[in-house]
Design a protein around this nucleic acid. Structure first.
Length: 593
RNA sequence: GCCGGUGUGGCUCAAUGGUAGAGCACCUGCCUUGUAAGCAGGUGGUUGCGGGUUCGAUUCCCGCCGCCGGCUCCA
């Protein structure tokens, strides 16, 4: 399935007599009743509908452990119960009555939920057949309507998301109003799995992780390091033309630095233990900002110097619990495309405009759509009202001036300032965490940053943290999935495969390669294997965008026979026009071939 | 970290309480080829690590490590 055809997330789903959430929640009830039937004595947690899916948490009787293999059994039981065509019915009861019922049913978690229901709110039970559950509903009319569902996975989950409390078994499933939608969703899940950057990372030789070296640390192979470098070069040239200055900062710093910055106090959990150097504690940096601040502070700054924009591809290390590591997307060491802008309050809005323009440009180059969220002041925060208002307004204005529509995320800001976060939408319609632009009133304060104003007095600058790609690990891992391993020309590790039909044409291919390499292209002669099919196959498997097949005819006319990795065969074209086309596609960073 | 699952040659996977097998990849030879798998042969594994049960374990049990699905958190 190609990205263009994968449309589940954009698909208009069949409507039923009730909203999908209701359908799914009812299916969760159905699942719970089936589980109850199969494992009497099971206690129930919660069973809500979530995006695309539903789940229900269970505490199974002593000794019962569920695995994926149990899912078909449960599904079967669900279908059996559904076929009984029982209506869902609702009864409102008094608190005492509810307590009695739940106690009789032996449902401690439900009792806890009951105690959380506020006085005056209705207490309702929903039942189908002889199964009932404390639930606020709503539900579909009858189990008869529950047809197109599928159980997906079993996992652990803490009661109320609190790791100090019981661990329950969570069953995930999904349900739709039409078989078509269900199939389409399952196909979508399959496509996601196929695109998984860990799978592609293996088959395309992109990266590796070596547990014996350390989990959560990425080794970039040439096939991924090449696109990364292309991105870095692009990234840097775009920053340079926008007045950013490069800086480099050390990976180790005296612990004192992180005490001043507050990271040690606030983010101590994610920092690695100190190492002793000459009796002094040092830490590996978890963030780049303190380093940039020290550069800012290395001399007295005048208002004439501002704004100062420092940019660094800064590698940081953060402790992540072993269970959360995930390929390139969640790691313990990563390189941020970090930048810090020091400016006056008056300059803030203009600076933000510049950042947002850059964000828009970079993100679109990769073919992502995005959504922006303006996160405002949270309850726990520092700084005066007028400062917050000014910065929040600056963010809003900047978004408006750059034509970026934002949704407001009330109270979602950092404690140190408001921000705009971007969510990227990939080729499958999935959302990824994207760029972030954050105003910071805290660090300038903690480090007592100053510049000398026109009035010859000391003033405190504003600081803007911003990352466009986020981290190279996560961003490129995401790109692999976005492109399904088929990078556009400008990113492809091998851009052109020169394929001799017979060994006689190998020399010709080598000479074309030389020209291409001279022109700055990454070209390889595919002479492995023993026949054309094998060579084409190898180039296809490597996802090389352009295959230049060369036989006797091509040699004679100084041409190539062009095949795209899409399978399209464009036939013969002169080598000269081939190179011209490549140059054009490369310069445009074209997403198509 | 926690719950559950899982760990066999480079990759994907099979098998068995009696010291492992296939496909792909790789190597060699034949074929000299017009757009995704030509033919034949061959190399390669102390079955994640440690311990236990057993006459004997890769297969059963325990511990550790990694990985996978989640919980929580984030770039």
């Amino acid at each position: 399935m190609s990205a263009e055809q994968v449309s589940f997330l954009d698909r208009k789903l069949a409507a039923g007599p009730y909203p999908l959430d209701t359908l799914r929640h009812s299916t969760a009830h159905l699942m719970a009743s089936a589980v109850q039937k199969l494992w009497p004595g099971t206690r129930f947690g919660v069973g809500p509908s979530i995006e695309h899916r539903f789940y229900y948490d269970f505490a199974f009787p002593e000794g019962v452990r569920l695995t994926d293999e149990d899912l078909p059994r449960i599904e079967q039981e669900m279908r059996r119960i559904a076929n009984e065509k029982r209506p869902f019915s609702c009864t409102t009861v008094s608190r005492d009555e509810a307590k009695q019922r739940l106690a009789a049913m032996g449902q401690p978690y439900k009792l806890e939920i009951l105690s959380g229901i506020l006085e005056g709110e209705p207490i309702t039970f929903y039942s189908h057949g002889d199964w009932q559950d404390l639930c606020e509903g709503p539900h579909v009319a009858s189990t008869e309507q529950l047809k197109h569902f599928k159980l997906l996975s079993v996992a652990g989950a803490y009661w109320r998301g609190d790791e100090k409390r019981d661990q329950l078994t969570r069953l995930y499933g999904t349900a739709f109003w039409s078989k078509d939608d269900l199939d389409s969703y399952l196909a979508y899940l399959e496509e996601c799995e196929k695109r998984d950057h860990r799978t592609l990372g293996r088959s395309l030789d992109l990266f590796s992780i070596h547990p014996e070296v350390g989990p959560g640390f990425i080794f970039w192979h040439p096939n991924l390091a090449i696109p990364r470098r292309a991105i870095e070069e692009f990234w840097w040239s775009e920053h340079q033309r926008r007045g950013y200055q490069p800086v480099y900062t050390p990976h180790l710093a005296s612990e004192e630095l992180f005490k001043v910055s507050g990271h040690l106090q606030n983010y101590g959990d994610l920092m690695y233990s100190p190492m002793d150097i000459d009796g002094q504690n040092y830490r590996v940096k978890p963030m780049n900002c303190p380093g940039h601040i020290k550069i800012f502070q290395s001399q007295i700054r005048s208002y004439r110097d501002l704004p100062i924009r420092y940019a660094e591809l800064g590698t940081v290390y953060r402790y992540e619990r072993s269970g959360v590591l995930h390929g390139m997307l969640r790691v313990r060491g990563f390189t941020q495309d970090d930048s810090h802008i020091f400016c006056t309050h008056e300059q803030l809005e203009g600076e933000l405009v510049g950042v947002l323009e850059l964000v828009k440009f970079l993100v679109r180059t990769f073919g992502y759509q995005f959504r922006a969220y303006l996160a405002t002041r949270p309850e726990k925060s520092i700084g005066g009202n007028e400062v917050w208002e000014h910065a929040t307004r600056a963010l809003g204005n900047a978004a408006e001036r750059t034509g970026i529509s934002t949704e407001v995320d009330p109270g979602g800001g950092a404690f140190y300032g408001p921000k705009i976060d971007f969510k990227l939408k990939d080729a499958l319609g999935r959302e990824w965490q994207g760029p972030t632009v954050q105003c910071d009133f805290n660090l300038p304060e903690r480090f007592a940053l100053e510049y000398v104003g026109k009035d010859n007095l000391r003033h405190r600058p504003v600081m803007v943290h911003r990352a466009v790609l986020g981290s190279f690990e996560r961003f490129v891992g995401g790109l692999v999935e976005h492109f399904s391993g088929r990078f556009p020309l400008w990113l492809s590790p091998v851009q052109i495969a020169l394929i001799p039909i017979k060994d006689e044409q190998e020399e010709y291919c080598r000479s074309l390669r030389e020209t291409l390499v001279f022109e700055g292209f990454r070209a390889q002669v595919y002479a492995q294997g023993t026949n054309l099919n094998q060579r084409v196959k190898a180039a296809q498997q490597d996802q090389v965008p352009y295959m230049a097949v060369c036989g006797g005819r091509e040699v004679e006319s100084k041409a190539v026979s062009l095949r795209l990795r899409t399978g399209e065969n464009r036939g013969a074209m002169s080598f000269e026009s081939f190179v011209a086309m490549l140059k054009e596609k490369r310069a445009a960073k074209a997403l198509d071939l």
